[in-house]
Write a protein that binds this DNA or RNA. Structure first.
Length: 350
DNA sequence: AACTTACTCAACCGCTTCGAA
DNA sequence: CTTCGAAGCGGTTGAGTAAGT
């Protein structure tokens, strides 16, 4: 037998509160305080359960509630707090005076979540997205960027922040994003690797894309040989690329446990590495799956209209191949790219 | 103008935590 | 230590509204 509902009394009203009910509740609490919520409705002359009264008070009637749009600062704070605390809305709310946990939760689910997704950040982990669908989209964009220098959308207008020439910018930023996501993938997401392995055959013949990318023996998990050798010092020097790598103190804040409580205020209020690694907050263009503002189908149409055009890469591995074919893809180029990735992202983002 | 779709947010449900007995 | 009631919390729902067709 389950637990009986909190409002056992029959005839207890549910649903939206009327102004009269609000009046009664406010009048009672301002005179007597909330006290026992269970007893409150009877004393206040309300035909509601105590729980409903408490919720109405804490989420709506409380005099210190701040209404209106969330400011940009609040937005950033919520994202930072969420990266440390997870879905602990009430704890997050304690850092935002006047905001209720319910309000923050709603704001997160309806706005911030989408925003992060569009920016290529997984809203659950606050790490670059590594879902296959997103990576495939990214690789298509990269291919288009390589093949079509005209792909410069208005959202790249902050190029100056990077000190880059516009024609190179889309190319480089897409590469950075792809590298980040791939490294994230290589670094820890073995289940995704398995998924990719199973999906690859469905995408066509890509075995030639990278020499021997997948070893035949995968009994101990997929064994990928990626075409670049990342030296240890690069890994450590680039926390933005390797978000799950241990911090200096030997702790990975964002992965210290399923419950991310216990974070210091510095951790909570400071800029969070895992958030600030994204390339641009202006990437949230129309297409949810496409943070670069150009739909892949549109780009393909554009490409098909051009004669003697190479096909756009259709997988992450194709994108890798493209990168490697690139004249610029020398060792020094990769080093520059990685340096850029690790040093330039924060000021761009926030 | 009518209809559909997408979005927002107040409110509810049910599980967990807390504290008194 | 255990039990039990109350409060707290997070996930979900659905009515109202705005935007799009």
């Amino acid at each position: 037998m389950g637990r009986p509902p909190c409002c056992e009394e029959t005839g207890v009203k549910k649903g939206p509160w009327t102004p009269e009910e609000d009046e009664k509740l406010m009048a009672y609490i301002s005179k007597h305080g909330s006290g026992s919520w269970r007893a409150l409705p009877k004393h206040a002359g309300l035909n509601r359960c105590g729980k409903s009264c408490r919720l109405r008070w804490t989420n709506y009637l409380r005099p210190d509630i701040r209404r209106g749009k969330f400011t940009e600062e609040e937005e950033k704070l919520i994202i930072n707090l969420h990266s440390v605390l997870g879905n602990k809305w009430s704890k997050i709310a304690t850092h935002l005076p006047g905001r209720t946990d319910n309000e923050i939760k709603n704001f997160w689910n309806t706005n911030l979540r989408k925003k992060l997704l569009q920016m290529g950040i997984d809203p659950e982990t606050h790490k670059p997205r590594t879902d296959l669908k997103y990576l495939l989209n990214l690789s298509q964009l990269l291919g288009t960027a390589i093949n079509n220098n005209n792909l410069i959308s208005p959202s790249w207008s902050h190029a100056g922040l990077l000190g880059l020439q516009q024609p190179d910018l889309a190319h480089q930023l897409v590469q950075i994003q792809l590298v980040q996501n791939l490294l994230q993938l290589i670094n820890g997401n073995s289940s995704l690797l398995s998924n990719m392995q199973s999906v690859l055959p469905l995408l066509g013949n890509h075995n030639s894309v990278i020499n021997n990318p997948i070893e035949a023996d995968t009994t101990n998990g997929p064994n990928y040989t990626f075409p670049i050798n990342l030296r240890d010092q690069e890994l450590h020097a680039s926390p933005a690329l390797f978000p799950s790598a241990p911090s200096e103190s030997g702790q990975d804040i964002s992965e210290s446990g399923t419950d991310r409580e216990g974070a210091s205020d510095q951790q909570v209020l400071g800029i969070n590495n895992s958030i600030s690694r994204t390339t641009s907050h202006e990437m949230n263009q129309a297409d949810d799956e496409n943070p670069f503002g150009a739909t892949s189908s549109g780009n393909f149409n554009q490409m098909e209209g051009r004669s003697n055009q190479q096909s756009p890469p259709s997988t992450v591995f194709d994108a890798w191949e493209k990168l490697l074919e690139d004249d610029d893809a020398s060792d020094s180029y990769w080093k520059e790219l990685l340096d850029l990735t690790s040093t330039s992202t924060s000021p761009i983002l926030w």
